[in-house]
Design a protein around this nucleic acid. Sequence first.
DNA 1: GAGATCCATGCCCGTAAGGTATCAATCGCC
DNA 2: GGCGATTGATACCTTACGGGCATGGATCTC
Lengths: 269, 269
Amino acid sequence: MDLDLRKLRYFVAVAEHQHFGRAAEELYIAQPVLSRQIRAFEQELGCILLVRTTRSVELTAAGKQLYEEAQGILASVASAVRRVHDTDRGVQRLVVAFSPGLHVADAIRAFTSRHPDVETDVVPAPWWQQDAPLRTSRAQVGYLRRQFNETGLHVIPIGHEPRVACMPAAHPLACRQDLTSAELDGQRLLDSPKRRTSSLEEKFELIASGHGIALIPLGVARSYSRPDLVHLPVTDAPEVETCLAVAADRREKLLRDFLQTATATLRQT
Amino acid sequence: MDLDLRKLRYFVAVAEHQHFGRAAEELYIAQPVLSRQIRAFEQELGCILLVRTTRSVELTAAGKQLYEEAQGILASVASAVRRVHDTDRGVQRLVVAFSPGLHVADAIRAFTSRHPDVETDVVPAPWWQQDAPLRTSRAQVGYLRRQFNETGLHVIPIGHEPRVACMPAAHPLACRQDLTSAELDGQRLLDSPKRRTSSLEEKFELIASGHGIALIPLGVARSYSRPDLVHLPVTDAPEVETCLAVAADRREKLLRDFLQTATATLRQT
DNA sequence: GAGATCCATGCCCGTAAGGTATCAATCGCC
DNA sequence: GGCGATTGATACCTTACGGGCATGGATCTC
């Protein structure tokens, strides 16, 4: 079974755009090539991944499954290659996962000044599965919002964040100063870590187009502001805890140092 | 960065054989092809993976790193493809990891007779990291020896196993009926889950060639017997616990059913 | 020093990936 | 209902790369 990563990447592009033309554009290849490659890929795999008409491209069940799997495969290949390069060049590296809106810059700056020899990277943590980069050892430590399965992870709480209601600027409640959760009762809420296939951007798109409103952490709201959305404090909504997390079986000195530096940085501010 | 899985497989073959000719033979390609592919692979990666002389092939540090990474990548690609096929065909599958010498056949037979619609697979668990297949979700449940990090796993003890001393047939102690651990004091012991790069076969090779002796679970000794090695009971060595393990966040009905069937099977025997 | 072993190089061929031009089906619109 | 726009598929050509064979060149053995 000689799955080809090139074709897998092609498939991912098509799956994401649901459009052969745009996917081809992104991949810098001609559209007919993409059509043929995808068809060949389906034949190699022995199952149909996409249902195409001239007006739409949709994923089949197998296609959806492959798309999910592909995320992990491509990401782990990329980070494996990076680790090989690191080993080759003899550098140590610390990869920090972060949830959007949490600022890791201070801690990383402090850390790199103490360890100029260690290279650092940051990777975003998917909102629907904050712990994924830690579990797949793509990152060694994470600045995360505490809404994930903590088994096997060591978690250090570092703060709190209020939740705000995110709604279209045209919404009847949008002119208010703040809200209580009771006032949101009648509203359709698009809620959190359940639907695995949608990105934050998609979620905002849904909200902007009037499909509902959402309760999101303040930091997320700040980092994704759009003119057609407003964010209102919800006075009695439970706060979100933010935390540092590391895989419980990691014991490297580098990690301990980072945690120490990070918590020290927090205490100063 | 367009890493090619074919070349990665080629590299793995060479790394395992440390010999281009034999690797090529295993891959059913000509040796010159392999030489060129590996060289091209090194250029794509931008680092040297192998130091070759006409008499030996050795992995560089980067090569060793890549070899480690490759194991995981290739395994996860293979299991991803299988899951895609499963989704396509609409079948459910249960993958059982097992440590060598633990017999899972009864439980699986009982399970499949209760769930003829569910396909089952078994995969070997690496001795130096029994929990790996569960952590990478390559398997949903494992028959393992209880010598791994249990955080995030749900563990059900199912039995005990004595340890035996494994030594060359020519060893001075080899004629004994049994031993006590005190008698092993002077001996060089090759012990357990530390060296991550060696297979069980290599370990036995080391023992056979007189580099030391090892304490291993009886079941392992039984399933890997060689004429040039003998296994002697060590009367006071601590026993190894065997167990069923599942990822703590897995809650599928299928898994519960399997655990139930498996423990019931144990009680009968 | 002769022979064996083993990786590298040179040369050839076939397949498959990529490009351009074009077709065919569907939708929107007047 | 017909026309144009959009979009995926097909046809055909070119190029690049994987693979095979023959052979070179280095190293170890005896």
